[in-house]
Amino acid sequence: MVSSVTPIPTRLNAARSAAAAVRDPELPMLTLADLGVLREVRVDEDGVTAVLTPTYTGCPALAEMRADVATALRAAGFADGHVRVETQLSPAWSTDDITAEGRRKLAEAGIAPPGAAPKRAGGPVPLTLGPTRAAVVHCPHCGSADTEETSRFGATACKALRRCRACREPFEQVKEI
C-alpha cells in the first residue's frame, strides 16, 4: 500500500504493477498489459493517471476495464479523488500490441494468437478477394498448420472462428487488426 507520503518513484512502481495486473474482461487469461491496451501510468503530486486505449471502437468492455483499473489503483492505496483513467484513441490499438507473453497465454488457453497486422500504406485500402492470409494459423490444440477459417467474426469483436482439419477441433483466433 502506498500513501501520499510514499516517494513518487515508489508510488509509480506500485501504480504500474496494480494497473498492469488488471485482467481483460473478455479475455481473462490476459492482463491489460499483455493485451497492450495499457498505454501509460503517470504519478504526480496530484495522484495517479492510467491511460487506456480501446481495442475496437465499439468494444463494450472498455468501460469495465476503466472501472477495474480505477478499483485496482484505489486498492493499491491511491485516494479516491486522485485516481484518473484516461482514454487515448491515437495511435489506434493493433493486435501487434499484444505482448509475447500475451500470445503465449492465448495459445495456452486454446485461442490462436494473431499474425502480423496488415500494414496500411495510406491511400485507399485495396480490396483483396479470395484467401488473404499468407500467414499460417496453427491449431492451439494439436499444433497442426492445416486449419481453415469458418467465420471472420466470433463471440467478441476481436476474435474469428477457425477449425483444425487435422484434429477436427474448432477454435478461436484473435484476428489481426
Binding site: 491515437s90 489506434a92 490499438w93 480490396l127 478477394l129 487488426i177
Partner: peptide
C-alpha cells in the same frame, strides 16, 4: 480534428473487415 481523425483511423480497420464480408457474400 484529432478526435475525428482517430475515430476514422480506427474505423478504417473495422470497415475493411465489413467490406470484405459483404464482397465475399456478393461473390
Amino acid at each position: 480534428d484529432p478526435v475525428l481523425a482517430a475515430v476514422a483511423r480506427k474505423g478504417v480497420s473495422e470497415l475493411t473487415y465489413h467490406r470484405d464480408h459483404a464482397a465475399q457474400w456478393a461473390i
